[in-house]
Design a protein around this nucleic acid. Sequence first.
DNA 1: CTGAAAGCGCTTACAG
DNA 2: CTGAAAGCGCTTACAG
Lengths: 383, 383
Amino acid sequence: MIPHAGIIVLADSLLFYIIYFLSILFLIKKNNCLKKKISIHDLARELKISATTISFVLNGKATEKRISSEVETKILEYIQKVGYKPNLVAQSLRTGKSKIIAMLVESIDDSFFASIAKVIEVTAYKLGYKVFFASTENETEKAKQLIRLFRDRQVDGFIIAPPPGIEKEITALLEDNCPVILFDRHLPTITTTNVLIDNFDGAFSATNHLFENGFKKIAFVTLDSTQSQMQARLDGYQKAIKQAGTVSKILKLSYNLLHTEISEKIKEFLQKNKQLDAVLFATNYLALGGVDAINQLNLKVPENLAIIAFDDDLIFQLLSPSVTAVAQPVQEMSEEVIKQLMKSLAVEDQSAQQKETIILKTKLIVRKSAINFSSVKNLRTAG
Amino acid sequence: MIPHAGIIVLADSLLFYIIYFLSILFLIKKNNCLKKKISIHDLARELKISATTISFVLNGKATEKRISSEVETKILEYIQKVGYKPNLVAQSLRTGKSKIIAMLVESIDDSFFASIAKVIEVTAYKLGYKVFFASTENETEKAKQLIRLFRDRQVDGFIIAPPPGIEKEITALLEDNCPVILFDRHLPTITTTNVLIDNFDGAFSATNHLFENGFKKIAFVTLDSTQSQMQARLDGYQKAIKQAGTVSKILKLSYNLLHTEISEKIKEFLQKNKQLDAVLFATNYLALGGVDAINQLNLKVPENLAIIAFDDDLIFQLLSPSVTAVAQPVQEMSEEVIKQLMKSLAVEDQSAQQKETIILKTKLIVRKSAINFSSVKNLRTAG
DNA sequence: CTGAAAGCGCTTACAG
DNA sequence: CTGAAAGCGCTTACAG
């Protein structure tokens, strides 16, 4: 039996190599996109240095672990030469971190969310994070799904413009020690870190701007929503109306209407309420629907009807007449969001962390759609 | 010594458990966002069924592997009950697949790219894929970085609107067996699967539409770019001009100008070329810059100057007068892109796969900015 | 029909 | 100052 042992071993190892070789081939075939990459153990073999030491050097722990500087430079140079990149998936599995931040906005199409997303992406990237975006369409169910999806992908934290009804999910994230920053609107019943604007003051100032320019019958076109930002805009409008001693006139439209549906509803509203001489729109896309309605009714702005939009947009500058708008401080908001998120990311225990609410001021960009026409007020009812 | 052995073992294992317990605590502390999740082995322990069998059931291989249906339903019910979700990172590390598609567009801000991104996201999601977006700003270096970044994250495939100069990177992807679909523009020197529109015909028809409406001195405002889509639009314009026997007048602007810079350059161009009675803009944002310039010059559209834009946009419908545009078939393009990508994803060897180029037709949306004013041509030079 | 075991590529506590 | 080994949570070829 002994003489055979060698042969058996040989046959065995030959078989092993054949299988190994086949499986390599199979893997290359099967794994699209998976470059035959160098692993840390390949480096270890080549350099005759353990993977441990290489890993320490890679993670900047060379001095902490007192790796000799010769070894360090040797490793660094070799890595440079062969272009080694650690496998982030393996890293993520091991550490439980992904260096990915999830950002849920209402709609990435919307110019406000698109511009804030852009600033956040750039800033986060500089800090070593990648941001993944998704649109909730302000739907509770879609937001829940997305939170689940991103958690499954092991994101490190969330930036969320929350739709209504996801208090439970946000609380669950925080309890599981997952950093969350809310922006644009918050959820009053739960304690979170929020980056908001002064919606009340924005709407209040805009309405007063209309009064100051001689307009008196001011309507407010908004969404049928109890969300904090919409509620505050409504309150700001109503405060100004009350203070002026006039009557409010409010149109509430449901979410997720198409552009043509919005303009149709606004058209009907304007036709039924010919006394109106000005309208404040609670969002940029409502204002765009309004512009369409106004065009269709052949009304002149601001002679027949003055308008102001909440959220600025390039379009408002291009329309004739250009549209006065309440601008949100996009740059400032984005920076504050990132700042707060980085703070949370650095903290071990989310529940212990102090929750802050930052409120930034809006700025009224005065253009031509709401300037003083006191001498020729409301030609429409006259005509 | 022997009497002590038991004690040592006990002390040893006690220590072990203390350390184990502490490290668990430490892990929970350290790993933000990492829910203490159930693993497949936890399930195996509870159910007294091997992880292998559970994995087979989970991956729909129950019948293939001839798992008894009792075992299958038992597993399925338990999973349902405890809400088990496999760890996608581990799955990805093991299989080399991520079910993630990377999509590189010029700018996610741009309405054309935003709308195509949206359709693709929804469609891909239904097919079990998540799409991650990023903007190249048409910069070669940024695109290279993004490709690297996404490969590090182990994406399964790419959808790319390529900036110039990344032929090498695209080729490398294909060689590494990574599915790539180009759209909007292609790279003529390499063989890839492309989903394009008929840019030549779009520009040709638009120019002819201007001729048919009585305009004669037609300029073309485009980007200083050799990219395929821009080249084809230029060629289409020139063909129409030549066929009509008139002279061409072209303004080439560099990429990445700000809106105000674009409108400034166009303003200068229009002032220097008062003979012009129409302009075809090669992109939607060039047209918006043009609208701004035209407003500043107090020109009337189309009486003084007719305009047509390439790429439709909601804004064009809202401007007064509304702007005629060459619309790209967004829905159709998106579907075609996904279809081609899924085809590539199913193929083992990318180099062996037949590369197709799909060319879709554009549609001219006739609005008011280029309608017939043959009786009152070019008032500007007259006035 | 079902399970034990290897391994994807990392990181890190521990030992020396 | 450096390395062997375990383990993150999966999947799958192989054995029975």
